[in-house]
Design a protein around this nucleic acid. Structure first.
Length: 283
DNA sequence: CACGTCACCTGCGTGC
DNA sequence: TGCACGCAGGTGACGT
């Protein structure tokens, strides 16, 4: 479950905790069950450095969950199918009663264990002395106060790229994925293939508003839960275009179209999000 | 610089 | 039922 609102929801759950927060607990041991889930360092070094470090805080940057530990920073990226759960742990073998898709587990000194599960094995974990090693590659947070409509317009002007792939580029803006990009573009009434440098100041302001309100609603609804990747979110019941190919646009009644952009299914209303000649890659 | 393609993975729904 | 196929919330490495 991996766009900004889902990651934010998971980070919040870990921070606030249904039973006990994992914040302020100390990690006593770690086990990695799928080697490639650990991006860095080596498993051996990981197992040496982790024990004894306490979890000082849990945050989010882009789609990364950021665990600030006493000495290092633990980053978790869920990619397509990752999730992090916390459960009561008897204190027996750390690998006891783990599930089929569990890729790493951390025992805590508060009677719980934290488990990274990831069916598709695309997710990654980093243990870094300096998290900026990874995070500095990211563009601004969508809710950053310094990201003004004018600044956003300037960012769009600085590129000549199709709007949707640009918005999904994490070095341009951090946090949007396939679903929230489609929903944001619909709300802003912008075609996914418009060239970024053709977006006007006014359109850029509307787009920034649309991105923020869409993400905000996603967070408010605890993210979206789709297929077998479920986390209790509700936003999937409020999509305007995503997964609605052939259904009537809720604003104008035209059938929602699905095209492929950058290998990703892309959903939009051809009437509300028209590709005017002056905006088109050709025109 | 921008874009297309493939790779990394497993699971699920659909249609024959 | 079996099986092939297409699809899936992401990203990174390549080639053009």
């Amino acid at each position: 479950m991996p766009e900004l609102p889902e990651v934010e929801t998971i980070a919040r759950a870990l921070r606030e905790g249904a039973q006990h927060s994992v914040v302020d607990s100390t990690i006593t041991d770690a086990v990695v069950l799928w080697e490639r889930s650990l991006a860095t360092p080596t498993i051996q070094e990981f197992k040496e450095r982790i024990p004894g470090q306490s979890i000082r805080s849990i945050g989010r940057r882009g789609k990364y969950i950021v665990f600030t530990l006493s000495s290092d920073t633990l980053l978790v990226h869920l990619r397509m199918s990752g999730d992090v759960r916390v459960e009561v742990w008897s204190g027996s073998e750390l690998t006891a009663e783990l599930r089929k898709h569990d890729r790493a587990a951390f025992s805590l000194d508060n009677g719980q264990r934290m488990v990274f599960e990831d069916a598709r094995k695309f997710g990654r974990i980093w243990l870094l002395a300096d998290p900026q090693e990874q995070l500095s590659k990211l563009g601004p947070e969508p809710f950053d106060q310094e990201l003004t409509p004018t600044a956003f317009h300037a960012m769009l002007q600085a590129h000549k790229r199709q709007l949707k792939p640009l918005l999904m580029d994490q070095s341009f803006l951090a946090g949007l994925g396939n679903i929230y990009t489609d929903e944001s573009l619909f709300k802003a009434k912008l075609h996914p293939l418009i060239l970024s440098n053709r977006v006007t100041q006014e359109q850029a302001a509307h787009l920034l508003d649309a991105i923020r309100s869409t993400l905000q609603e996603g967070i408010h609804r605890n993210g979206a839960s789709i297929d077998w990747v479920y986390r209790g979110g509700d936003f999937q019941n409020h999509f305007y275009v995503y997964g609605r190919k052939g259904e009537e646009c809720q604003l104008c009644g035209a059938p929602i179209e699905r095209i492929v952009v950058g290998q990703r299914g892309t959903h939009f209303c051809p009437a509300c999000q028209s590709l005017h000649e002056q905006d088109s890659p050709i025109g």
